[in-house]
Nucleic acid binder design. Sequence first.
DNA 1: TACCAATAGTTAGTGTGACAAATATATAAA
DNA 2: TTTATATATTTGTCACACTAACTATTGGTA
Lengths: 148, 148
Amino acid sequence: MTQELFARYSFLLDRTARKVKQYAQQQFKTGEFDVTVDQWLVLKNLSENELLSQTELANLVFKDNPTLTRIIDLLCKKNYVERVPHPQDRRSFQLHLTESGISKVSELRPKILEIREKAWENLTGKDFEEFKRILDTIYQNLDGQVSE
Amino acid sequence: MTQELFARYSFLLDRTARKVKQYAQQQFKTGEFDVTVDQWLVLKNLSENELLSQTELANLVFKDNPTLTRIIDLLCKKNYVERVPHPQDRRSFQLHLTESGISKVSELRPKILEIREKAWENLTGKDFEEFKRILDTIYQNLDGQVSE
DNA sequence: TACCAATAGTTAGTGTGACAAATATATAAA
DNA sequence: TTTATATATTTGTCACACTAACTATTGGTA
């Protein structure tokens, strides 16, 4: 039945997403990158957008606030990120990379691009377009359905 | 640069997989299904293959042993699954659904197919084939690279 | 028989994800 | 100014993923 078949997309998606994260994390560990995959995502976005608040950054990386708070906690402990009190709004912080954070990003960026390429062997630019279109459609279909 | 572009697949994949799980979990909660999305996956596979060992089931659903142990623990607590000592091998168990587990599966199956359909709006059977092909290729590219 | 490697499953530690509730501060309305 | 509401972040709880280490058992082999 078609319905049964389509229902398998969730399984394939979950399985592949986990494999991708697992592979990257394994490479991160081998290379002693000193950050996790999610911590890298946060660092990378901070390096491209300085002085974000936590909420802004959370929206950018599609993580919820509690999750981001905890990731930032870890990055602060590792001394890659600092929370600077917002000059006008005492509720919020401006996030910025430390010296150490900046050099970590430039050290890791090329290595991570290399790791990411592995997944895309045997696939074309056109495949990527299809992939992106389908994933975005699924996302849109389900977004706005959850508490919005 | 193409490399930068391709590297975004991991982000898109992770984001969409999380949205799919979140949407389903939200519907599960609203419908008071009394199980999580992952618990459902395990129940469903048990209903299609009785008397599996935990390791066999883990391979089937692509979860690792510790994760499966905890999911089975929870399903036993909820009285949907029982661990029966394996008659020949005292190290392992045969898993089987209780009466309650069987009726839970048949109660939830149609509802979940309906929930799963939502994601596939505006997409075709051909899209599904492409989707499956690309995800499987990515999986294969990275599999066997991690401790195997 | 005694040893040893492999296997089944569990436990513990850390990180992440979702959700709800709490705290502090800001802003708008009465 | 007081009150009400909204926003930024944190804390707590539960579930899941991955790793490493551990127990018990099995099966092969010297």
